[in-house]
Amino acid sequence: MAEAVLSIRELVVEIPTRHAVLRPVDRVSFDIAPGEILGVVGESGAGKSMTGNAVIGLLDRPAHIASGEILLNGTRIDNLTKDRLRRVRGKQIGMVFQDPLTSLNPLLPIGEQIAETILEHLPVSRAEAESRAVAALEEVGIPAAAARIGSYPHEFSGGMRQRVVIALALCAEPALVIADEPTTALDVSVQAQIIALLKQLCRERGTAVMLVTHDMGVIAEAVDRVAVMYAGRLAEIGAVRDVLTRPAHPYTTGLMASTPLASKGLKRLNQIPGAMPPLSRLPEGCAFHPRCPQAAERCRKEPGPTLAAGGGRAACWFAREPVA
C-alpha cells in the first residue's frame, strides 16, 4: 500500500463541561491512502463530523484535541499554529459541507471566490487564477462556466451550488478532501450526480476522500473502505463489501438490518432496542452493551478493544472473525 495521505492515531477530542469532561472522539485511528474514499458512518452524535473537524482544525471551543496525532502526508498537523494551519487548510485539505449555501460567500461572484482561493495557495498570476477558476468550474460540470463566473451563489440551484463548492475544495489541488454529508440536502437524482462527480475527480487526481454520511446506500456505492462510529469510538472498520455484507460488530449488524432496504418483504423493520446514550451518560464497559444482543459480563466491565490503524476490524470482544 502506498503511504497514507491521512493518518489518524489514537485521536481524542474532549469537551470540558462544568460537570464532566466529554469525549466525542475517543481513541480513533485510521489511514486513508491516495485515491481512496473512506466512508465514515454513524448516528448523530457518534463523533463522525467531530473527527472531520478535528482533522481540518475547525473544532469549536471548548472542544479540543486532547491527545493523539493527525498526520497529513507524514507531517503532523494537529499541533500547528493558527497561521500555519491556515496554509494547510485549503491548500492541502479541501472541504465540502452539507449546506452549499453556507460554504459560499453570498456577496462575491463564484469565479471571484475560486480565483481568490487559488491566489492564496498557488503561486500564479491573477489572470492565470481566473482561467483556472473557469477550468475548475468546467471540470465539475457547470454548463457555460466562462459565462457564469460572474454569477452569485443565489443564482444557482442546490446541486449546482454543491458543484461550485466541490470546485472550490479542489481548486488548490489538495491531497485530501473531507466531505461532510455532501448530498444530504440534495434530491436523489442530484445526489447521484454529485457522488459520481466526487468518485470521478478523486480517481483522476488520486485525491484521498473522507466521506462522512449517515446514508448506507451512498456508502455502499461510493466508498472503498468504511468506518462505523458509535458513541465517539470506532466500532468497525474494513472494506466496504465486507463490513456491509458480513458485519463483525453487533452494532453494524443492527444498523444494516434496520435499513428498509435490508428488511425487504418483512412486515416490520428490524430495530435496535433503545437509543445511543448521550456522551454525558455513557455506560460503563462497552458503550453498546445495553443495546447489544450478545453482551456478556466482560462487556459490562471492560470497554471493547481499541482498533489500531491497519489492525483488527471490530471493537468487540465477540467479533466474529471475518471470513478470509
Partner: peptide, 11 residues
C-alpha cells in the same frame, strides 16, 4: 439513481 445497499462500486 437511488443508492443500493448492494451497489458496491456501481457506476
Amino acid at each position: 439513481a437511488a443508492p443500493k445497499l448492494d451497489g458496491f462500486g456501481r457506476e
